[in-house]
Structures are given as C-alpha cells and as structure tokens.
Write a protein that binds this DNA or RNA. Structure first.
Lengths: 225, 225
DNA sequence: CCAAAAGTGTTCCGTCTACACCCATGG
DNA sequence: CCATGGGTGTAGACGGAACACTTTTGG
C-alpha cells in the first residue's frame, strides 16, 4: 500500500489545551514551564503531538487527562494555527482546544508533576510561540458563547449558589452584573434547578444551592443571559 | 539539523474551501466532481494539500485563486477536521475555510476547467468524506456572524440595491424579513452609504444603489441586523 | 449587636415588530 | 393604463436596565 497522496508532504500536528478554571472570583488559566527544547523554561500552554492512531479530539482528551487526571471534560475547538514559523523548532501545525474544568476536581499532585499552575487571565505572562493569541481567541469565544450555551456550569461544582454563578459570568464577561436582574433571568431558565440544600460556608445566613439539570436542557432551548 | 520533534509522526494536512455565492435570491455553494482517487467522481469541496512553504491561510488563498482566479477574497477558518478515517485514502487532517465571493466576479472558464458548479445550499447533494459536515458548520457560522459582522457585502457587487441586500440576509438566515424594518435598520448603519447611482435593471422605477464604505467601518462599531 | 452576604419588585425607557399604501416607470 | 418593484411611518408590545431595602446569623 503506497498511499494515495505520496507526492505531498506531511507535517507535525499537535494539540494545545487552553484550560480555564474559576477560583476566588477570577477566571484562571492553566499554564506551565515548557519542558522541552526549543523554548525550554518559557511559559506555555500544555499540549502534545497528535499520534497516528488518534483523532484530534482524542489527542486533546489524552493531553487533558494526562495533565489533570480528569475524563469527560468540556472541550471545544478554538481553531488551527498554521503560520510557517510559529514554532521556533520545526514546522508544527497546532489545533487549539479550550477546556473548562472545576478547579476543585483538579489533581494538585499532577499539577505539580507537570509544573503547571493557575494564573488569572488578566495577569497572563508572555507565552511560548503564538499561545497568547490562542488564549485571546479562546476568551473571545467564551464570551460570545456563555450567554447562549450552558458553559458556566463546567467551571463550578455540581451544586453552586447563585452568587457563585454570577461571579463566573462577571469574570468571563469582565463586567459587573446587577444581582436582581441576574436572578430574574435565572428564574426564567428551567434547567437551573434550586435544590433543598443550603450552603453555609460562604455566608452566615446561608445560600440555596442550585444545580444544572442536563436532562432538562435541550440544545434547542435558547436562553439569554 | 535533525529537528526537535523527530520521534513524533507527521500527517498530511489539507485545506478545503467552502465557497459561498449569492445568485437569484439563493445562497449558493461551489462544488465539483472529485478528480482524484479515492472518491473520484464524487461531489466534493475544492481543496488542496498544505505545502511545506505556506501557512494554512496561504494554502487556502492559493486554492481559492486556482479555483476562481480571484485574489483578496473574504475568508474565515471554519475549523479543523481530524477523525482518523475521515478520508478513505490515507489519514489527512483538513482545515476548512469559508469564502464569500460575488458570483459576477467569478471566472466561468476556470469554473468549467475544474468541473465545479454552483448549487443551492438547500439542494446540496451528499459530498465526499465529511464535507457535508463542514458546510453545515460554515452555514451555522455565517448565520451567527452576518448579524454582527459586515459579511454580506462580500456576496454582492460593489454597488447594490437594498432589496438585493435584504435578499442576501433572507437567503442566509432562511427567513423572510419585513422590508420597512430592514430599511430602518440599514439607515442607522453609517457605513452603508447611499450613492447617486440608480439601478434601472431590476425594476422599472429604478432603485438607489448603495455601497459598503470600508473606511467608515470600524471593527468596534457594533451593529445589529 | 453588627457586619456580611442572601434575597426580593417595580418603573422606565428604548428596541423590535407588525402592518398598508402611494410612487415611478416600462411596456 | 397597468403590472412591477421601490419607497415610506406609526402604534403597541416586549425586554433590558436602573435602582434600595429587609432578612438571617455567626462571631
């Protein structure tokens, strides 16, 4: 089997993961010191090469699993980056994926092993290659979509208070939101369910815990937030 | 120079172009019969492999130039498609690009040479590999963006009537629009300029010709349509 | 008893939507 | 003179934004 496309050239393809988390009212990004040449020691997104036996999504999932120990992560393609000299080593075309995780689920040991840590997106340092551009694009996508797709829940624990949820929106959108208007809109969304549970950690009075009901959500149900 | 990433494997990368046009009140797509194996003779998007010396965008531009004879085409990345068996020949990762062109500018001779033709998007046949999925995604993106980005002008000649413009929106969105409301919104957009010219071809009375003023448009000026 | 966060409605204003008739002209 | 597409305004509904006070309880 000689192959059909033999006359054409092949190229390295990698995936890079833009991992967002939410903590202390801030949107956070997981970055680490690059552990290979070229660019060893520079701040960088976590990534990996795409193997012969895996799709792009599989490669991204594998990389995310290696990094966080988590499976079944919310993941969305951000785009392909293919400038000739984008990687200082050899030519590599990268497909960037944006992942949203709950920082509590995250495995701190793995974090340390890979030398990655959380930084606030507004304190992001210069990253390796064109990784800053990837992050910018991912944040832009996040902002566009958070109003019409149920993304925010991926950044929170299963049970959350409305104040927490509001803080996620404020962190992503970068603006303050009126509490009463926010809660009014939440009430209109039927797949955000109030539970009987009460959170006593974040306030003396205690706050009702809510959850996202995946079953009640249909991709067709357009909502506005 | 042995390279830094020698232990990893390389893969074929191609670009596929989803070329939209607008004619007779319909959104059209440029497709052709595939002229190589495997899949020879099947309906397909037009594409090409990414060379060692060109970026993804350059490859897409080259492919579009080869196909249409046009330079400086509006082009947007749709996404990367990387399922292992997506191509029946060998493994190929493809980056899809969506292009918008004015069907009048198009070179009919090249069209014939490459064996491509325009089809209405609602009469699209089964295409090679996962190309239908690419088109679906491109149409979805188009619908999302046409309301907030000045895309529509790329599908029209430099000078156009408001009725033509409205038909573009109707074709893309797949729904009727109220003429008076549409024109009211247009009046509020300052980078759509009325000219002194009058088009006498499409109606007996004649219709004012408008143009999109690129200079008056700023990417920040958010508009709603 | 007080600090700190939770919870709750109303009014106003601007935006979107629905809707029908006259105009100019070529044939 | 009539068929064809061009062009115009208003009223009512709806949705989004602004805005302040009471409740609960741990310390």
């Amino acid at each position: 089997m000689t192959g059909f496309y033999g006359e054409h050239s092949k190229v390295f393809v990698s995936v890079d993961c833009i991992v967002f988390g939410f903590d202390h009212d801030k949107l956070k990004l997981l970055i680490g010191r690059r552990q290979m040449d070229p660019g060893r020691g520079e701040w960088s997104l976590y990534g990996g090469f795409v193997g012969e036996d895996e799709s792009l999504e599989e490669a991204a999932s594998r990389v995310l699993y290696t990094l966080t120990g988590l499976d079944d992560i919310y993941m969305k393609q951000v785009g392909a980056f293919g400038a000739i000299d984008r990687d200082p080593g050899e030519r590599v075309i990268t497909v960037a994926y944006c992942a949203l995780i709950n920082v509590n689920d995250y495995d701190q040991k793995l974090c340390d092993e890979h030398g990655v840590e959380w930084v606030s997106i507004d304190e992001m340092p210069k990253l390796y290659s064109d990784h800053n551009e990837m992050v910018r694009k991912a944040v832009a996508l996040l902002r566009k979509r958070i109003g019409t797709e149920p993304l925010s829940f991926n950044l929170l624990p299963e049970y959350f208070t409305l104040t927490q949820l509001q803080h996620v929106y404020e962190a992503v959108l970068g603006e303050q939101i009126d509490k009463r208007n926010f809660r009014k809109r939440i009430k209109a969304i039927d797949f955000i369910e109030k539970t009987e549970m009460i959170d006593k950690l974040t306030s003396k009075r205690g706050a009702a815990l809510y959850r996202f009901n995946k079953e009640a959500f249909s991709p067709l149900s357009s909502f506005k937030l």
